[in-house]
């Protein structure tokens, strides 16, 4: 059990990181990374939904008929997304307005369905919960890194607090959608280049 938890953590955070290794959940990874505060809340939302829907699927894994399991999984995920949406609207209305439709789009985030399908439905609930949570955190980590670069260069701030001061010339491109593609591409490039070098060394 302990080993299992460690392997899951390692896999989900790095070796099989959903965003940079499996290229999943890219839509929201690009859309919400202009400000770190938005990214953080979005990451927490995705983590919550992944963890709990994976656990729920795992609880119900012997009850759900195989043929309609996709539909059932989607409904489970959608219910948790509605909870996230209502909570955000009530307690963080500004961020909820900033995130706009992307909160609802957590439903179609492939990471969540992927975890339910690949892990939740064939493993016990607690492990499924842990796996979902770690996948969500792996996603959050990458997004925080992207938004760190974008917010720092685009606004000179971090979490809305000025860091670089007035001398910094703001990079307008970093605020625009195009930069999200470039930053993510460069991260993927760096990670994959390192990976192929490693496997070449191993022969």
């Amino acid at each position: 059990m302990k080993n299992e938890i460690k392997t899951i953590t390692e896999k989900d955070l790095w070796t099989e990181n959903p965003v940079i290794r499996q290229i999943l959940g890219i839509c929201s990874a690009l859309a919400v990374t202009n400000l770190m505060a938005n990214t953080f809340i979005m990451g927490m939302g995705v983590t919550f939904v992944t963890a709990f829907s994976s656990m729920t699927v795992s609880f119900l894994r012997n009850v759900i008929p195989r043929r309609i399991r996709m539909m059932v999984q989607t409904l489970i995920i959608a219910s948790y997304v509605i909870i996230v949406d209502i909570v955000l609207k009530a307690y963080l209305p500004d961020i909820s307005a900033n995130l706009g439709p992307y909160v609802g789009l957590i439903i179609t985030n492939c990471i969540i369905m992927g975890r339910c399908e690949a892990y939740g439905q064939s493993n016990p609930p607690l492990l499924a919960f842990w796996d979902g949570m770690m996948s969500g955190l792996g996603y959050t980590l990458v997004l925080m890194f992207i938004s760190f670069i974008r917010e720092l260069m685009g606004f000179g701030t971090l979490f809305g607090i000025s860091v670089l001061g007035d001398w910094w010339t703001r990079w307008t491109i970093m605020v625009m959608p195009a930069s999200a593609f470039f930053v993510l591409a460069i991260i993927i490039w760096a990670v994959q280049a390192r990976q192929s070098k490693k496997s070449a060394e191993r022969g």
Partner: peptide, 18 residues
């Protein structure tokens, strides 16, 4: 090598967006 596949597609998309 590291840029092949998704990395390259993302960069092309970025240029298209610009």
């Amino acid at each position: 090598k590291g840029l092949q596949g998704p990395g390259f597609a993302l960069i092309v998309t970025g240029i298209m967006a610009m």
